[in-house]
Design a protein around this nucleic acid. Structure first.
Lengths: 239, 239
DNA sequence: ACGATTCTGTGACGCAGGTCACATACCTAT
DNA sequence: ATAGGTATGTGACCTGCGTCACAGAATCGT
C-alpha cells in the first residue's frame, strides 16, 4: 500500500523487513503480534505534529519511516531541540510510562509513517509481555544517554564553535570507518534548527560554518556536508 | 546498627520505614524480599565515588540515605552536574539496563547509605519480576524528565541570571504551599557546584546571588536560603 | 587553638556571540 | 519566467560573562 507523500507503508510489524535493526521493534514473534493488534498506522506530512508540549499523554508513537524533531519552547519564542528521532525509535514514551503530560513537541522533519500505541492498551501490553518492558527500558535508557550527550554539549563547551564541532562529530560517528580522516553526511536540518540544537543564534551557525570552510575542515554543497579533517574538528573540542 | 559517620543504617528493604515515599523501593513484599536477597549495603563518606565515568558498569545503586551528584567532566577540567540524586533514587540504572559504560561519575555529597545491586543478579531479578521492571521504567522516565529540564534550563535561558532563577524555583517547588510568595530551603551545594549545574563560572554565581539579595528577592544566612519573592523570581525567566 | 584549606566576595578587562539590519541565493507554485 | 517565501551570508554594534587576581570568611583537621 502507498500513502500520500509517495511513502511506501510498512503494514505489518511481524513481517517488517527492518525490525531487526531497530531498538524497540526487534521483539519475538508472539509479542509482535500482540503489538500489531493494538497499533494503528498513520502517515504525516513534513511539519505535522504528533503531540504538543503540555498535552496530556495519549500514548506512544513508533517512528517507522521518516524523521522527527523533539523540542521545547519558551513563551518568548526561544526553542531548543531535545533530539532528532530516527526510524525505529519510540516517541512520547517517557510521558506515557511516567503518566505525565508530554514534555516536548514532536514535529515531523520529513513525510513519515508512524504507528500509534494508545496508552491504556500499551500499558496492558507491557504488563503482559515482560520482554517488551525490557525494550522499553532500553529505549528510555537510550533517550537518557542522548539527553546527557546534549547536556554535555551545552554545558562543557567553551564556545559555540566547540558545540557545533561536537554535533558534527556525533553525526559523523555512525558513518565513520576507522582509519579515514573524512566523512560524508547529508544534513537535513537548517542553520536555524542546528542553532536550536546547540543553543546559539542562526547567524552564529552560519558564521561558524563559514570559518570551518575557510579552514578546510568541511565543505558543503547543497545538503551534502563533507568533513575533510575529522582530526582537526576533534582538536577544536576540549574533551 | 550504626555505621561510621554517625549514620543510622536501614538494614532491611522489606521493613524499610520510608519505602512508600520512594520511586523505586515501593514494591510488593515478595518482590522486595527478592531484592533484599541480591542487594548488599554499604556506607560512604562525603566525596566518595560510587562509580566513575567510562568504567564498565558493575550494577545499579539504590541511594537509601544521603545525597549524591552525578557529573561529567571534560579533559580540560570543565565539569557539568547532570543531576542531584535524592534518597530512594537509583544510580547507574541507564548504564546497567543499556549494558554500557557508566556515562557519568557519581560522587556522594554527604555521608550516605547505598544498596548495591550487581548487574547479573539485578537483570535476572527484573526478568522475574515484571512489577519491578515497571518501576525501573518509572525511574528511567524520571531521569529523562530531569535531563530534559536541565536542557531546557541550559538552552532556553537568555542569561545566567535566568538559569539560576530557574534552578532556585525548581528547588523551591516541592516546599511551596500555594498562595504564599515565599519559600525556605537549605542549599547544600557550593557556588562552584551551582555554577557547574547551570554551566556558568563560580564568580558569576556569586555575583548573581549578590544582586538577587540587593533586589530583596532572596536572603541567605549560612546554608539557609529564603526566597522572599517567588513572583519576582518567576518574572526573571522567559517562560 | 592553630594554621591550612576551602569557600565567598569584588574589581578590571576583553571578547564571543546575541541582536538588528540588510543583501543575496534558493525553492516551489502558478 | 515571475513572484513570494524561506534559507543563507555578512557587517556593525554592544553587552554579558569568563578569566585573572586578590582579600576576607568560614570550615576543617590534628
Amino acid at each position: 500500500m502507498r500513502s500520500p507523500y509517495g511513502l511506501q507503508i510498512i503494514e505489518n510489524c511481524v513481517t517488517c523487513p527492518v525490525k531487526e535493526q531497530r531498538l524497540f521493534c526487534n521483539l519475538p514473534k508472539g509479542t509482535l503480534q500482540a503489538l500489531q493488534a493494538i497499533k494503528s498506522t498513520a502517515t504525516y506530512p513534513k511539519g505535522a505534529m504528533l503531540f504538543v508540549e503540555g498535552q496530556e499523554s495519549r500514548g506512544a508513537f513508533i517512528l517507522c519511516k521518516g524523521k522527527a524533531k523533539l523540542y521545547t519552547s519558551s513563551s518568548d519564542g526561544r526553542t531548543i531541540i531535545l533530539r532528532i528521532v530516527q526510524p525505529g525509535e519510540v516517541l512520547g514514551l517517557t510521558s506515557t510510562i511516567g503518566n505525565k503530560a508530554y514534555e516536548a513537541t514532536a514535529e515531523m522533519l520529513e513525510p513519515s509513517q508512524v504507528n500509534f500505541l494508545p496508552k491504556e492498551e500499551f500499558l496492558r501490553f507491557l504488563a503482559q509481555h515482560g520482554e517488551a518492558s525490557l525494550h522499553v527500558g532500553k529505549q528510555l535508557s537510550a533517550n537518557c544517554a542522548s539527553a546527557y550527550d546534549e547536556i554535555r554539549c551545552l554545558g562543557l563547551s567553551a564556545s559555540s564553535t566547540e558545540k557545533l564541532a561536537r554535533m558534527l562529530l556525533s553525526w559523523a560517528a555512525p558513518e565513520m570507518k576507522p582509519g579515514t580522516n573524512e566523512a560524508r553526511l547529508t544534513l537535513s536540518l537548517t542553520h536555524e534548527e542546528i542553532a536550536q540544537m546547540i543553543g546559539a543564534s542562526r547567524e552564529t551557525v552560519t558564521r561558524i560554518f563559514s570559518t570551518l570552510k575557510k579552514k578546510n575542515l568541511v565543505s558543503i554543497k547543497g545538503a551534502m556536508l563533507w568533513i575533510r579533517d575529522i582530526g582537526g574538528l576533534r582538536r577544536m573540542i576540549a574533551n
